[in-house]
Amino acid sequence: MNKRYGMSIDIDKCTGCGACMVACAVENNVPALPGANDRRGITWMRVYRVDNGEEYPDRRSAFVPMLCQQCGVETPCAHVCPQQAVDVDPATGIVGQMPERCLGCRYCMAACPYHARYFNWWDPQWPAGMEKTLNPDVAPRMRGVVEKCNFCHGRYHRAKERAAAAGEKDIRPGEYIPACVEACPAGAIRFGDLNDPSSEVAAARHEAGSFRLLEKLGTDPKIYYHSTRDWVRQIAFAPKPGGKENLHG
């Protein structure tokens, strides 16, 4: 049966430490380049700080990890790509980005409602010797192409290979988890198959306080957020949390 991998992020647990952001960069061979800033840097996983808009000491903050929301219906980036460099894998539901096909027009970046796509402004480079620490399961991307989160697809490959070696038909639940899920010290991120009713994520989306970002667009994103605080749930309607255009609740 086809899978539909999804994630459930508990904002009430996220301390905004950033372990997921760096674990993602380590796993996916994303470099840090000296000129990179919040517009030109690459962070497949980016944690934004949002607040309730009050003045100190009534101000309250929350941290919202943002990554590709893996839209399942009318996937905006896949729709606009002139190169067919973006596709949705029917077997996993993962939205894939093919750097080799990408011509760098960045139409997908404009189309993405979540600002979750990043452009390689430079060739990837690491300080001398640090290229030894690159993950062999992920190919470094070249300058001039767009990239984004693919739920650590290299780990999915690894899990499948292990299953094949063990003579199992399919990978076991929990055998495949993205790096951010593994790294989160607070246990705020859960990952699994939304089609499997026994999985944690399938149960989490029906919990009270569960919501998706910009659900009204009808793109069926596969990242579910959770918060018991009303003002936090307002981010579901905001264009970009943490930005200047932040919608205060």
Binding site: A85, D87, V88, D89, P90, A91, T92, I94, G96, M98, E100, R101, D137, V138, A139, N150, H153, G154, H157
Partner: peptide
């Protein structure tokens, strides 16, 4: 049948 058409990432990394 599973080996049929799949996403790009099935064979790319």
């Amino acid at each position: 049948a599973q080996a049929g058409e799949r996403g790009c990432l099935d064979c790319h990394k």
